[in-house]
Computed example of a mutant assay.
Amino acid sequence: MTKENAKAKSSKSAAIAQPRAIVIGASAGGPEALATLFESLVDCNIPAPIFLVLHMPTDFSAMVAAYIERVSGRPTSTATDGAPLPGHIYVAPAGRHLRITGRPSRAMMRLDDGDSENFCRPAVDVLFRSAAATYGHGLLALVLTGTGHDGLAGAAAVAAAGGTIIAQDEKSSAAWGMPGAVVEHGHATMVLPIKVMGLKIASLFRPVEPGRAA
């Protein structure tokens, strides 16, 4: 057992329910990790909306969205106020927090210019906390490579709401600050290499065969 897996204190042997939404946080090394993740999900039918916070020094959100759309084959755009569409990927714009409000069946995206958290705006914690309040146990949170600890408090909120948290492992991370903090505090449901993470996510959206448990 690896050090990372040993520290994933909240690992569960029970089956994970199909997510109703996916939130992703990434920083240093994020574009490469996201490319690997989404390339492995090209042939996977994911009806859930996907929300992404990637720390960027300036507003490259439109460029990032175009890049992700190219590698993922999924409709991707910069997040705006309004209802998310199934199967779409939304990138938080630089300089603005992305929050999710409402109920799972009537979720809404909201952007604001609130105070920075962890010296970041957008902050992963803001997205994760708000999405946890909206989707509860139907939320899947991914904490990818990055420096600092943005996403730690948000991951705690996801765990408290019964959601699932997958942290990128140290070996495949360019910087293990963000995922490492989540693992160290025992919030990770599982810790996976980025090349394996996509396979795990795809398995959550496969139909259950008749006569087999989910």
Rank of each mutant, 00 (worst) to 15 (best):
H137D: 15
D150C: 01
R99T: 15
A156L: 10
T147R: 11
P93I: 11
A94E: 09
A131N: 12
N118G: 11
T134K: 06
D150I: 00
H185C: 07
S130K: 12
G180R: 05
V126P: 05
R96V: 00
A157L: 04
L152W: 05
F128N: 05
G177T: 15
D169N: 14
L98H: 13
M190E: 15
G180H: 12
A123Y: 12
L152R: 13
L140D: 13
M190R: 10
P104E: 10
I166G: 04
P122Q: 05
Y135F: 15
S116R: 09
A83I: 15
A83N: 11
A175K: 07
C120Q: 10
V191Y: 02
V126R: 08
N118C: 09
W176D: 00
R129Q: 09
R129S: 12
G87R: 07
P84E: 12
P86Q: 01
D112K: 09
G136N: 13
F119E: 06
V143N: 03
F128K: 09
L192I: 02
G177S: 11
G146R: 06
E184A: 06
A167I: 06
W176S: 01
L127P: 02
A153M: 12
M190C: 08
S173I: 00
A94N: 11
A92F: 12
A157N: 11
G102E: 07
H88A: 07
G162F: 03
S130H: 08
G151S: 13
T134W: 01
H185L: 04
A156H: 12
D115F: 01
P93E: 11
G146P: 00
G162V: 07
P93F: 07
G154P: 11
P179G: 03
T164P: 05
L98R: 09
L142I: 13
K171S: 14
M108K: 10
V143M: 10
G148V: 05
W176R: 04
H185S: 14
H185R: 08
H97Q: 13
G146W: 11
G148S: 06
S116A: 14
H97A: 07
A155L: 03
L85W: 02
H97C: 10
G102M: 13
A131I: 07
M109I: 07
S105C: 14
L98K: 08
G180S: 08
S172R: 01
P93V: 08
A131K: 12
T147D: 10
A156W: 02
A160W: 01
D169T: 05
E184V: 00
R129F: 04
D115Y: 08
A156E: 14
G102A: 12
A94L: 01
R103W: 05
D125Q: 06
G95S: 04
V124A: 05
M108S: 09
T101H: 03
I165W: 01
G95F: 06
E170R: 12
I166C: 03
T164E: 06
